[in-house]
Design a binder for these strands. Structure first.
Length: 565
RNA sequence: CGCAGGGUAGAGCAGCCCGGUAGCUCGUCAGGCUCAUAACCUGAAGGUCGUUGGUUCAAAUCCUUCCCCUGCAACCA
């Protein structure tokens, strides 16, 4: 039994998660966690909200709330959304927790003691009316190059030139609109990445053969361009106060404590049952843990460079990522998801239209693994109607309805296998072996392709075996064929569980069975599994597993979610 | 010359690392079946593998030119 630690990039507290966020880290991490549990492994799956930073402060200000209550409220909102998608995390924590504070301090002090922290003076824009330092992007003005009047202090969106806030003509705070700004000097702490680089380089090299291209090449790019010391403190109120003399009025930069949040949240989890759980069993290199991280490509530099460097710099043997699964982006009907423009499907709305499993299956089978991919309702409808209804749902329906009407509502007896059953078992075993292989290698598109191929084997078998013809001459043989088919339903349910947990439970319930979510797929052998549902066991036909999506409904959805450019 | 990823049948993807009959799903067309959800099964048509030049007996695959899409460019997360 392997110990597998799974984390998804922590969604930022302010954001409204859309399908792109779901598919870009949260959903695949859940599918993987469920799969590895089913394989009998000891999985710890950690998610939570990333809460610090200017954006929450500003968000709270706009909502007229204090930051803590604002984050409390949004934390609940995120939690509910992910529960609606059936994410099976062991703990949904917060980067603002006491536990994370404790670990952040511990790591910081180790880095400081080891000489990886240095002081530097930084010039920054201060807004006198807002009484705060402004991050570059919270300053707008006219671009000196192209004259665009909404250029941000970090970059002009119009001409794409990278800017300094001081380049802007007529700079203003985007928070209050005030132009009462001045440049002030402030002392900050930096993590000396160049000093850690040799260790980091060596560690990263060991991942080259294993990580997906998207991840490794991005990490390498940063090393090639040369690392620079990275500022880890901010002049803000909302965050962990810096425990160092002269820095009492500053907090840690959100990107310093956010990834440490994986550890902090694990401690939140273990603090709930301190006699049974220990975060230290998961977070040190000698604990024999396999650690897999999921994230979008924008997050890769932080997880492949700065966070590992932070951990390496402690010299405390903290667990670092073994496999970094980076994803590209999902675009929406050819453009970007945008809450402000009301374009795209947001996670909360998605589950009001269709149950989570529709989205889970669709997103996993079209996950942006090698390049960006596009969500369209045409494709969504096609996948739901073809794969879920036509292939899987229809198989369950035809088998149970036929058995019920021709034989009765108990499982008919099995019989000696013919060449047909032997061939079925052989084909299934081939696809299932590949399914397991691809799942454990985190090749989701390929894995989902094999899952679908497994379902097709069912329809293929029943077509070739023709129980509707055989029953006229040989009812016993027809019953044996249907016995195999009912066993196939159970097998399909077990295999589909990581992707579509609700549907799997529904399928199993029809056969009066339950899913074993721990080890249900361990030592899976088709020959044996095809005999699991025994003669005489009762079953229910039930309603269709999925609803079809009509062309009219597809058009309605497109209109409702703003697909028109 | 900023960097990275991508450009393969009408659509969406695999194959590229380790050159050697271009594969899968949807869609289209034809056939089969009638247990089932206008579904299921089988077969066919459809591709000068973005572009230029090169290496090689042989290039989607290796090197090179240019073009297009996406993301990043370190104080937004």
């Amino acid at each position: 039994m392997k110990k597998i630690l799974v984390t998804s990039a922590l969604p930022y507290i302010n954001g409204v998660p859309h399908l792109g966020h779901m598919v870009g880290c949260l959903l695949p991490s859940d599918v993987y966690a469920r799969f590895e549990r089913m394989m009998g492994n000891n999985v710890l799956y950690i998610v939570g909200t990333d809460e610090h930073g200017t954006t929450s402060e500003v968000g709270a200000l706009k909502a007229g709330m204090d930051v803590q209550s604002y984050c409390d409220m949004n934390h609940e909102r995120h939690y509910k959304t992910y529960k609606d998608f059936n994410l099976s995390f062991d703990y949904f924590g917060r980067t603002s927790s006491e536990q994370n504070k404790e670990i952040t301090y511990q790591i910081f002090e180790a880095l400081d003691k080891n000489g990886f922290i240095e002081e530097r003076e930084v010039k920054q824009v201060y807004s006198i009316d807002d009484k705060m330092f402004l991050a570059d992007r919270y300053i707008t003005g006219t671009c000196p190059y192209c004259g665009y009047d909404k250029a941000r202090g970090d970059q002009c969106e119009n001409c794409t030139k990278v800017l300094e806030p001081t380049d802007l003509i007529n700079p203003k705070s985007t928070i209050s609109g005030s132009s009462n700004l001045e440049v002030r000097t402030s002392k900050h702490l930096f993590l000396n990445l160049p000093k850690i680089e040799p260790q980091l380089r060596e560690w990263l090299k060991s991942k080259e053969a294993f990580w997906p291209d998207v991840a490794y090449s991005i990490a390498l790019k940063w090393l090639k361009e040369g690392l620079e010391p990275r500022c880890i403190t901010r002049d803000l109120k909302w965050g962990f106060p810096v425990p160092k003399k002269g820095y009492e009025d500053k907090v840690f930069y959100v990107w310093f404590d956010a990834p440490i949040g994986y550890i902090g949240i694990t401690k939140q989890w273990s603090d709930e049952k301190p006699t049974q759980r220990d975060w230290k069993d998961w977070w040190f290199e000698d604990k024999d843990v396999y650690y897999v991280e999921f994230m979008g490509k924008d997050n890769v530099p932080y997880h492949s460079i700065t966070f590992p460097a932070t951990l390496l710099g402690t010299n405390q043997n903290y667990k670092k990522v073994d496999y970094l699964k980076g994803f590209s982006y999902l675009t929406y009907e050819g453009g970007k998801f945008s809450k402000s423009e009301n374009r795209g499907v947001f996670a909360g709305d998605a589950v009001t239209e269709f149950k989570a499993d529709y989205w889970r299956y669709f997103l996993m089978s079209n996950i942006p693994e090698s390049s960006d991919s596009s969500f369209t309702f045409d494709l969504f409808s096609s996948v739901v109607n073809k794969d879920l209804n036509g292939v899987l749902g229809n198989f369950v329906s035809r088998v149970l309805k036929m058995t019920s009407s021709k034989i009765g509502n108990t499982v008919p007896p099995a019989d000696t296998w013919t060449a047909l059953e032997n061939e079925l078992a052989a084909n299934l075993q081939t696809h299932i072996d590949l399914y397991f292989k691809y799942m454990s290698e985190l090749e989701f598109r390929k894995a989902l392709g094999e899952l679908r191929a497994v379902w097709v084997e069912g329809n293929n078998y029943i077509t070739l075996a023709e129980p509707w013809t055989v029953i006229k001459e040989d009812p016993k043989r027809a019953g044996a064929i249907l016995n195999i088919c009912i066993n196939l339903i159970r097998i399909f349910a077990l295999l589909s569980y990581p992707v579509m947990p609700e549907t799997s439970e529904n399928m199993m319930a029809r056969l009066d069975l339950k899913i074993d979510e721990h080890a249900g797929l361990k030592d899976f052998n088709v020959q044996k599994e095809l005999l699991a549902v025994k003669e005489g066991m009762p079953f229910e036909v039930g309603e269709p597993l999925f609803e079809r999506i009509t062309p009219e409904r597809t058009e309605e959805l497109k209109a409702k979610y703003g697909s028109a450019k």
